[in-house]
């Protein structure tokens, strides 16, 4: 147990090389998040456009 804790601490301290960048596979819940993000951005842009055209912003 003690050794396990110790090795976990060392693992936490161990340095990592610069990460290699590969395109992430967007699927499952990540895909849902991206669609949520797109919808949010479009909704906000529409609200901003309405606000500007009505002169309420």
């Amino acid at each position: 147990m003690k050794d396990g804790k110790k090795s976990k601490v060392y693992a936490l301290m161990e340095d990592t090389p610069q990460v290699t960048l590969e395109r992430a596979k967007v699927k499952g819940s990540v895909n849902v998040i991206f669609w949520g993000l797109r919808i949010y951005i479009v909704a906000m842009v529409v609200l901003v456009i309405i606000g500007f055209t009505r002169g309420t912003i």
Binding site: Q18, V19, L21, E22, A24, V26
Partner: peptide, 16 residues
């Protein structure tokens, strides 16, 4: 600290 890369680089590299 883990990736040694900036935020813009990570978004560009991972999400296109």
């Amino acid at each position: 600290a883990v990736t040694k890369r900036g935020h813009a680089e990570m978004i560009w590299g991972r999400y296109g």
